[in-house]
Design a binder for these strands. Structure first.
Lengths: 99, 99
DNA sequence: CCAGTGCGTAAGTTGCCACTAACGGTAAGT
DNA sequence: ACTTACCGTTAGTGGCAACTTACGCACTGG
């Protein structure tokens, strides 16, 4: 979750959104050098958000479905709580007007 | 979205999860000073993730439902793309074994 | 009107992190 | 074996952002 803080890392995930990609291809089009991309990929991998697969000298990275699912579930439960609190507040305000 | 990068800000949102809270009450229990909390709240407000309501000398903060909904929608579309790419890759691999 | 409370803001400092440059390592082609 | 392509790692640096301290403002009660 902390890995989503950096803008470049979000750009990387955005480029991996539709399918796997190699590191060089990934760095091509990003405003940073290739080693920087490697470092970001290490962070993302440590966070369980991406996974790698070797293909000759290249390494193909893809978004890790399991890791993203965890973030998604946390987000959904958070959203549910916030929505419940919002509706409870609206109902409490409605009762105020009745008195 | 960039506002979710900091851990303290996520703690603040976590404390606002079940309902509104004042700034002092919010800072109480966090490992940082009250002005630091104010600065974080300003960032979160700029990102549209929280909203304030004055109550005497106090200011009650709550999670902004609309702002959070935007982040949620982006997340859902991202999740849909990743899942589609994953299933497409699995299907392509299944065809490989047929040949 | 005068404390006291509850916050926001400005200024200044420190620590961390994203970045580049240089190097080393592995796989494939000739 | 030599070369080339592709990538990870390390060391070192610069800039930014989160933090504290000090100050000023708005509101409330006496």
């Amino acid at each position: 979750m902390d890995a989503l803080g950096d803008g470049t890392r979000r750009q990387i995930l955005e480029r991996l959104r539709r399918g796997p990609m190699a590191v060089g291809e990934l760095a091509q089009g990003l405003p940073v050098s290739r080693p920087a991309v490697s470092q970001h990929l290490r962070v993302l991998k440590g966070a369980g958000l991406v996974a790698e697969r070797r293909d000759g000298t290249r390494r193909l990275y893809r978004v890790d479905t399991d890791g993203l699912a965890e973030v998604r579930e946390y987000f959904e439960s958070f959203w549910a709580d916030v929505l419940a609190a919002f509706e409870a507040a609206a109902e409490a305000e409605a009762e105020m007007e009745d008195e």
